[in-house]
Amino acid sequence: MTNISKPLLEGDLQSQRDESRGVEFIKSTLRNRLAALGVLIVGLLILTAILAPWLAPYAPEVQFSSDARQPPSLQYLFGTDIIGRDNFSRILYGTRVSLLVGVASMVLAATSGVTIGLVAGYYGGRLDTVLMRTMDALLAFPAVLLAIFIISVLGPSLLNAILAVGIVYMPSFARLVRASAISIREKEYLESARAVGLSDIQIMSRVILLNSLSPIVVQFSLGVGYAILVEAGLSFLGLGVQPPTPAWGSMLGYGRNYMSIAPWLTAFPGLAIFVTVLGFNFVGDGLREALDPHMRRI
């Protein structure tokens, strides 16, 4: 009887510990008021992106020519643009572009960067040198300018904006993962993993990747905010999402030409970018504090 119940008991304790650790993690993230606010903002943004067609009072392309250049009012919450499109509806739809570019470019950056970092850190040697020197070369250039250079070659479009931001951010993930791969390369449990007969790929994906998951998550969340900023900048310069697709950056670039007669066209899209980036940064900072006890007092 005791023989059977003992391992059971241990298992119970373990799962209880896991559960309480999970709860503790969520609690400590949310206890941080800014992080909670960030989660709220990001949640609302995701809902807005999904529900844009139902939330928007008008379709984003419809032109109410007789109501062109209207200042904010009850009928047009954020005013209308020069050809009479509803600014508020366009901003709601713009959420989709920002979130799409933010998340897709980080998925691209994370998958490629993590793979490079894992391979470089795990195998070391000449492969490591070649891969990391390439990453260094990418970092040997200011991020925004690199993105602009890539766009200038590929041509401006939504997809190329995602690609450019993804490439620019890739080295950060590669460096992060390589560092943790190197730090655990010589640990004993890696040797035991090898002794059990796990292949290199299994070791990389199960052992090393799992061990460096928390900094990756933090980097991802902060990266989304950064990517949204860069995309907005590209679109502002006319090098990102092309009209008539409503994107906050290109709306700002369009509105700047009419600042003296329709300032609401620059004010609101910028505010939307600001709140969105703030939201993702709050979540990222909160995650970092929750996952990295060292950061807690800072």
């Binding site: 900023l229 900048g233 700002l252 600042m259 899209p269 910028g270 600001f274 703030l278």
Partner: peptide, 16 residues
Amino acid sequence: LVGIALPSFWLGLMLL
């Protein structure tokens, strides 16, 4: 916190 999230081009335009 605010300064990091603030798009520089928007800040510039608002100053203008």
